[in-house]
Nucleic acid binder design. Structure first.
Length: 309
DNA sequence: AACTGTATCAACCTCAGGGC
DNA sequence: GCCCTGAGGTTGATACAGTT
């Protein structure tokens, strides 16, 4: 067994295909097949189950791959410590939910980056499933994962199983954001039912948890509005809210300057009892660099600015 | 039956390391 | 510097099994 074998196995797990993995690794399929077979023989286990649909890891294979991925990450970390250009290179990577206070923090973060440095910044807005996957499979350093507080224990178990460390950033209640011209915009207090005849704008791939329980998914997605617009990107959400007077969206509280810019207001519903959490997730063995810490501080600051709107 | 994906084989190439 | 060896790679062909 050698490091190449680990790399090959991880690539096969990622692609679920010998052919595709061989292509990604710029090698021939026969050679990859032989290498994996040798690896399995040397370990005395079957790592992958072969089918005409592709390759899937066995239970032992899953265990092996989990160790293999950790080893590869550690080697990469070790190498990056001593690379010649390390001092001049910033690598910051994070997957986040579609939240304005986080993107606001990111903008402030980007403003503070040293122009003289060679930077590599990866900022991806996605759902919780993909965010976690990005850490495990794609070598992202950080993720902010959003879930309903009621599902916390499920997530904690999952983080532990996947060798991840989680740190709570914020527990909050959703606010309804709407145009200043919305008929509820001037009301001091509103109830969820007041929004029934408005158009709900929501993201089509929300932060549904990893469990199969369909009721959890339903709970996350449920809303009282009969008219809904599902978006799969964030760019046009404020324009829609601004343009369609009768629309609203459930959001984590939004920074004031974004509301002003788009002529929006945000309202808490007095009977909205559901709470959500944003937690920062990384591998258990990951050490924050100074850019990670800067971003976390800015998220904290953005949170403090919006939490008592 | 056609297609898709993996397994295996033969023949050959490239490269690094060791011995002389 | 030359030769040998082993590891790891390629190409091309074929076999086999499961799916459509």
């Amino acid at each position: 067994m050698n490091l190449l074998h680990l790399k090959y196995a991880v690539e096969i797990e990622k692609t679920r295909s010998m052919n595709k993995a061989a292509e990604n690794l710029f090698m021939g399929q026969p050679n990859l097949s032989r290498a994996i077979k040798e690896l399995e023989e040397s370990l005395g286990i079957t790592i992958f189950k072969r089918t005409s649909k592709g390759m899937t890891p066995t239970a032992k294979g899953e265990e092996f791959l989990s160790y293999a991925k950790n080893i590869l990450v550690q080697i990469e970390t070790l190498e990056s410590l001593y690379k010649d250009d390390n001092e001049n290179k910033i690598r910051f990577s994070i997957s986040v939910p579609r939240a304005s206070y986080i993107s606001h923090a990111f903008i402030n973060f980007a403003k503070q980056l040293d122009n003289d440095k060679n930077t590599e910044i990866y900022y991806k807005e996605t759902n919780s499933v993909q965010a976690i996957d990005n850490i495990i499979q794609e070598d992202y350093h950080l993720a902010i994962v959003r879930y309903q507080s009621a599902f916390e224990s499920y997530f904690n178990i999952m983080f532990n199983e996947k060798n991840l460390r989680a740190q709570e950033l914020w527990e909050f209640e959703y606010a309804a954001v709407m145009s200043r011209r919305h008929r509820l915009a001037d009301r001091d207090s509103i109830m969820c039912s007041d929004l029934n005849d408005s158009i709900q704008i929501l993201h089509g791939d929300p932060y549904v948890p990893l469990m199969n329980a369909s009721e959890i998914k339903k709970a996350e997605l449920s809303g009282s509005a009969e008219k809904k617009i599902f978006l799969f990107e964030r760019a046009s959400q404020f324009e829609l809210l601004e343009s369609i007077d009768n629309s609203y969206m459930w959001v984590s509280p939004i920074p004031k300057e974004i509301l002003v810019k788009h002529n929006l207001v945000q309202k808490r519903c007095s009977d909205f009892k559901r709470k959500y959490k944003d937690v920062l997730v990384c591998r258990k063995d990951y050490n924050f660099n100074r850019y990670d810490r800067l971003f976390i501080n800015l998220v904290e600051k953005a949170k403090n600015e919006v939490e008592n709107f």
